[in-house]
Design a protein around this nucleic acid. Structure first.
Length: 207
DNA sequence: TCTAAGATGGGT
DNA sequence: CCCATCTTAGAA
């Protein structure tokens, strides 16, 4: 990989006020990690926006607790939490201090360190990173990394200076947030149309 | 204290 | 459909 071809996203990218716009902008960007000296990277294929002020699906909605505190901090840091007692899910905190927004990364296409990802995941192919829990394991993310700066040396994002981003982005409802009632219908999931690394949706048995 | 539910993934 | 696995938030 030619590291010269990537330009790290500046802090200002994360401090913008509209988390839905940021979630769209993140599709096609590249997520890097350097964990235990191992460099891994992947192109972001699928994201979801969570708005702490008007969205019942957001963990920070109506609550400021030990777990959600990082989302209330200034944007540009990681929020990684344990889901179902098993999976570490990676989120990007956005917006200014006090405004608790975040973007969940749901799928990546690996572009560097596939061998490292395979050893962490014990599988190959799309299963390496076609879901939020899978990609976090492939990248070496753990819940203890919550608060890590995304402009630092352990986890960061960049744009490929040679990529014209000529893909088609689709929007649809978010996955697994039915508990948020009417907010579950918000079209705040963004993804590259027909991409092989998209997370799999559990098909409804009656359709 | 107690406990239901959860931004999933892998298997049957 | 079933289950692993354990934290978290809210109730009692």
């Amino acid at each position: 990989m030619n590291i010269e071809a990537y330009e790290k996203l500046p802090l200002s990218f994360y401090l913008r006020s509209n988390v839905v716009v940021i979630a769209q902008d993140l599709v096609g960007k590249v997520l890097f990690s350097q964990v235990n000296g191992k460099l891994t990277a992947g192109t972001i294929i699928e994201t979801e926006a969570y708005d702490g002020r008007r969205d019942k699906a957001c963990h920070a909605f109506g609550r400021r607790t030990e777990r959600t505190e990082v989302m209330y901090q200034k944007g540009g840091r990681a929020y990684i939490y344990l889901c179902y007692g098993i999976h570490h899910l990676f989120n990007i905190v956005t917006n200014e201090m006090g405004l608790a927004d975040a973007v969940l990364i749901r799928a990546l296409e690996p572009i560097h360190g596939e061998d490292v990802m395979e050893s962490r995941r014990d599988t190959t192919g799309v299963g390496l990173s076609n879901g939020p829990g899978s990609l976090s394991q492939a990248m070496g993310f753990r819940r203890e990394m919550t608060g890590a700066s995304l402009t630092g040396e352990e986890i960061w994002l960049a744009r490929d200076i040679n990529d014209d981003e000529s893909f088609t982005i689709e929007a649809d409802r978010r996955v697994g947030v039915d508990y948020a009632k009417e907010d579950a219908a918000l079209p705040w999931r963004f993804f590259i149309k027909d991409h092989p690394y998209l997370s799999k949706r559990k098909q409804k048995p009656w359709r």
